[in-house]
Design a protein around this nucleic acid. Structure first.
Lengths: 334, 334
DNA sequence: GAACTTTATGCAAACGTTTGCAATAGGCGT
DNA sequence: ACGCCTATTGCAAACGTTTGCATAAAGTTC
């Protein structure tokens, strides 16, 4: 039997009511007698009826869709391979669904530069969650100014007129520095690129924490934030400067893992010669050997909060940025 | 200036033409005089005009959306954390966009059990890509029988009446076995769970390859396919049986990494005492120490092919399952 | 029993596109 | 001048919901 597609009107006919009654019944509108409502709903289930979302959206001017815009750093079209970002997206997905919304996965390639037009005017989504501030702060600003319901995963200390949710990166840096020093490190080093908003917070926190713990001279090894770059940089540094550090605070776990590989290859003992602290707490942190001490970002709560704030905006409330709590997870690398 | 939302009719008025002409002009319909077309298009750009997707979909009965349905193995609602699956999704995303489609990220939580009704009747998507056959083969079958445009990422040897794209898992197993043995392994072991369709192929290939290379007695260590389970299982085995194997073919890189951690902790040298080969080639394979020899799955090509086949279905063509080529990437662990 | 309220339902318009068909205008051959 | 063809545009219907308003039936009050 070929699939016979029913519309609301057909369902209504089956139930012996008008289309309007059927519509209201499906929405559990108390205007309709309870008995009727249940009859219609039961019939809908039996026939696997589902509303035409396109028609519904057109009529309601609402999509019940949230777009997630992944802000790739690179200009070149390429897939995301940062496991942490993917984890964030995955947790957003869950939170979105839990609120009865659907998730449109997008990127600047599709959205172009006029995000408001594309998503909102185009009735593709009711609001947007931007993951990663990347280099497109200007576009985010523009969209926010146009009044687009918008929440950004990034550095919550960003001074902008849009809402940002992110971890307390400064505190994370502090914790890392204090931990390294408490574990005996005299020459801790920061590995990352303070040019990124979030990372600069981590670096500042790192310096502040170190100073407070009595270590004023911290090194900064500036690199692209990939594990490959970390690997190369540490190799290069060991060759040139020798082992003039005894602790590393890496700006992400992937960077930390890259650094550790270089250390291990050169028989630098972790944590005896060099202690390492990462950031994110991706799955690999626990599986690497030695396992990686790191600052955990609570992605589950992040997803929850991002969505909650976006929905609040949609219902007209004024919301503000906020920070997520973080925690140091101590493992073997320190 | 508050954002003034224009509809097609407004744009038409601006251009001094009728709505129908404007519509056709935007679609580059040659019925319309070239000059007029260009005028309308230019005007659209200037005013950041974008069509109301809801209205368009309603009228066209097409959404230009492809849904990606992530088939979680576990019953419990939880986020995906398998980096390989995420990579697949990410590459599908790119391929989808390249074809001018949008990507609806979904899961069984939203779609319920009547996928056809939800996605197709509900006009949420034109077709669905299922990632991971998981335990819901029945649901996939049902959707396929209902005539839903559908492509599955999984084991292409699956005998089902839906289209599957996946790697040549059998060949992967063979390559792994041959490589291990060529590198001197006498007692290679498979680490994984042959209950899964894809993994059973890998296991069968592994056995066949070993046999052909002259090793008839291969071990099988059956585990949940997580790195934690692998870690635990290897630890347990070393304690109970001692080191009675000298090669591991892990069913995935994550499993391999978990196993390697256990080996390293007990000072079993890789690759001297035990050689390890993984499967997938996730980013971590290269960064782990020692770096992991593995069978690379070409996720980029996978995304491309999945989308291509789905679109072919949409245009009424008959398509069949197909296998992706794989390659052994030799690194330090073997 | 008239006037009024309450409860339950139906009618019809509107959301913004796309497209078959009709219409207009100009060109050209006879 | 007439018919006919082509090129370009416009009219109006349709896609399937949702909802303000009208309606109808039934209950309540005086």
């Amino acid at each position: 039997m070929p699939h016979k597609k029913l519309k609301l009107a057909d369902l209504a006919k089956l139930a012996g009511v008008s289309t309007s009654t059927a519509s209201r019944a499906l929405n559990d509108n108390p205007l309709i007698k309870k008995e009727t409502r249940e009859r219609v709903q039961k019939l809908a289930k039996e026939h696997n009826f589902s509303l035409n979302a396109a028609a519904s959206r057109l009529r309601l001017q609402k999509t019940k869709v949230i777009a997630v815009l992944i802000n790739l750093d690179s200009e070149t079209e390429q897939s995301i391979d940062d496991p942490f970002l993917l984890k964030v997206v995955s947790d957003i997905n869950l939170a979105v669904n839990r609120q009865g919304y659907e998730l449109l996965l997008s990127n600047s390639f599709m959205a172009g530069t006029d995000w408001y037009g594309y998503f909102i005017d185009g009735r593709r989504a009711d609001g947007v969650i931007v993951v990663g501030q990347g280099k497109q702060q200007a576009l985010i600003d523009k969209a926010a100014k146009a009044g687009m319901p918008l929440v950004v995963w990034g550095d919550p200390k960003t001074d902008a007129d849009y809402v940002v949710v992110g971890s307390d990166n400064f505190l994370g840096g502090e914790l890392a520095a204090e931990h390294l020093i408490a574990k005996g490190s005299k020459n801790p080093m920061f590995l990352g690129d303070p040019a990124h908003a979030e990372l600069s917070e981590r670096y500042d926190g790192f310096c502040a924490g170190a100073e407070r713990a009595g270590v004023t001279a911290t090194q900064l090894l500036k690199i692209d934030i990939t594990s490959q770059a970390a690997y190369d940089a540490i190799n290069h540094k060991l060759r040139n400067d020798g082992l003039d550090f005894d602790g590393i605070f890496a700006c992400s776990d992937m960077v930390a893992l890259g650094a550790m590989k270089a250390l291990k290859e050169r028989y630098v003992s972790i944590p005896n010669d060099v202690q390492v602290v990462g950031f994110d707490d991706i799955a690999m942190a626990d599986i690497s050997f030695p396992s990686l001490t790191t600052i955990r970002q609570d992605t589950r709560q992040a997803g929850e909060l991002l969505v909650k704030k976006l929905l609040a905006q949609l219902s007209g409330q004024k919301v503000s940025s906020s920070q997520l709590e973080i925690a140091l997870i101590e493992r073997q690398s320190s």
